[in-house]
Write a protein that binds this DNA or RNA. Structure first.
Lengths: 113, 113
DNA sequence: TGGTTAATTAACCAAATGGTAAATTAATGA
DNA sequence: TCATTAATTTACCATTTGGTTAATTAACCA
């Protein structure tokens, strides 16, 4: 049994799966919807397999309604991955400036809405 | 040819390789030194292979002196991975508080010297 | 009921992955 | 020179990975 962090990084190591997560970050979607952008060069069963990998890593969740399978993003494993990488952030110099700027950005957005 | 981000996440998907990076975060080390913590259950050639994966992903660099191969951490790909994950940070709620705290921590350390 | 839609499973494939033991190469030094 | 140390390569292995096509299952609806 693969540990959670390994499963997460492994899931993220494929471009198709990263693109799927990007799509889900905008809102939940059905399997067919997720397949659409890749339909010219990838089969639906291939997408099903990718989703299985993402689900096993805990990165997505599926809900079932009739013949529909709706997928949604679960950010928890991403946060764990981010936390792991964070221990190395002291190694890049601009870290302080970037975080400062990013933080201010978020505070602005939060105050607006 | 695998794209850089995929190679990075793929490299990070193995616990041994993450442990190697953790060791290198404390300072550069020879192949034998990196092998030592694993020597009871993993061969030296296996470590060589892992290092090859890390090197191909750009996560480490090797310098050569006589029969010695010294490995050191390269944080750039980690930063790229962190940046990629960062786009999802809005999905976890404590992000703002954590970043704020972290930033203050770093500023304290920098002011000390 | 039978056709349609959505999704999954089964069977297959080539390549990649994490290991091993043995052999080889590179460098040192008695 | 030959033994020792450090590291890599070779050859092998079982398993996993990203795909495919065909078949099957689940659900809807005229």
């Amino acid at each position: 049994m693969k540990d959670r962090l390994s499963a997460t990084f492994s899931a993220l190591s494929d471009p198709t799966r990263r693109a799927i997560l990007a799509r889900l970050s905008e809102g939940e979607a059905s399997v067919t919807e997720l397949h659409e952008p890749f339909s010219s060069d990838m089969s639906l069963p291939a997408i099903t397999k990718h989703l299985k990998v993402l689900e096993n890593a805990g990165l997505i969740q599926k809900t079932k309604a009739a013949q529909w399978r709706t997928c949604s993003l679960n950010p928890e494993p991403l946060k764990e991955a981010s936390d792991w990488i964070e221990q190395y952030s002291l190694f890049w110099e601009e870290s302080l400036d970037r975080l400062d700027e990013y933080l201010k950005d978020i505070q602005k957005k939060n105050k607006k809405g």
